[in-house]
């Protein structure tokens, strides 16, 4: 379990990174925290010709908490965001979900940008972003653009980023006054990818849910009907659970997450 050889680039600036991304295109993989990529390299499930390591890009490490959103630089680690009390105050859903991302030691290295760009449908953060209606900024030599969370995830491990684009910022909308949120998941062991998970935001009588692990992308559902939520998902069978069972979990998680979010909304409101 040793990685195949690769060319290694560690650009000093974002512009240099963008240039490399533009030149190398899909032949290069972007190395952020490496907590998902390196296992695949070690198992030789991925053998890119080159790695573009973003570790030197301190300009992508920041947490800016404003009234309406928490803007996070892509190279911010899970742990840094998890520890941010300001981010927690503005959007408690983030910390709640981050606490379920693998284990602390993995979160010390894993980055927010890496998790989102990796677009693992079983991961927590993409659902959080979708439930909140967040957005990301992406950059290329051609310029910068924003992508709404709803448009970002296109398939398993696939986003709408162009091959020359880099994800630079993730923006989580702040929770409105009187709103409540909850993230719940059911996993085999603590820290495992969820068999199913639900991010829920209840605000002004509206309920927004996004589910992990039950489709090729985070599954977004409005409303609190467990059966409707289950019907919206498209889980598959694997060694850990059947699709039917995952749909059942969606029903349970819908009730529980909505209940919890409403409870919290009442407390805060």
């Amino acid at each position: 379990m040793k990685p195949a050889p690769f060319e290694y680039h560690a650009p000093e600036t974002l512009d240099e990174a963008l240039r490399l991304k533009s030149e190398l295109g899909p032949e290069a993989s972007v190395l952020a925290g490496g907590q998902s990529l390196v296992p695949m390299l070690n198992m030789r499930l991925a053998s890119p010709e080159a790695l573009i390591d973003l570790r030197k890009l301190d300009e992508l490490r920041y947490i800016n908490v404003a009234d309406d959103a928490v803007a996070v630089g892509a190279m911010t680690t899970h742990r840094a965001l998890e520890r941010s009390d300001a981010a927690y105050s503005a959007c408690p859903l983030i910390r709640e979900a981050l606490g379920l991302v693998a284990h602390a030691v993995v979160r010390n290295r894993g980055t927010i940008g890496g998790s989102v760009a990796h677009a693992d449908p079983a991961a927590e953060l993409p659902s959080v972003l979708v439930a909140l209606g967040g957005k990301v900024k992406v950059r290329s030599l051609r310029g910068e653009r924003e992508i709404a969370a709803a448009d970002l995830f296109t398939f398993h491990f696939t986003t709408s980023l162009e091959p020359d684009e880099l994800l630079t910022e993730i923006s989580f909308p702040a929770l409105e006054q009187g709103a409540g949120s909850a993230f719940l998941e059911i996993s085999r062991r603590h820290g495992d990818y969820a068999l199913a998970g639900a991010a829920c935001v209840v605000s002004n009588g509206n309920t927004r849910l996004a589910f992990t692990g039950v489709g090729p992308i985070p599954v977004f559902v409005e409303g609190d009907d467990p059966d409707a939520a289950a019907a919206a998902t498209s889980p598959s069978d694997d060694i850990h659970a059947t699709a039917d069972y995952r749909r059942q979990l969606v029903r349970v998680l819908t009730s529980r997450a909505v209940g919890l979010a409403r409870e919290r909304a009442q407390v805060s409101g």
């Binding site: 379990m1 390196v38 296992p39 070690n42 742990r79 284990h103 030691v105 993995v106 290295r109």
Partner: peptide, 22 residues
């Protein structure tokens, strides 16, 4: 060597990390 067992944990700049994933 796939980041699950934690046997290789060391501290890099103070933070505990998996040395097999770096």
């Amino acid at each position: 060597e796939h980041g699950v067992c934690g046997c290789c944990t060391v501290r890099v700049d103070g933070e505990a990390v998996r040395s097999c994933l770096m």
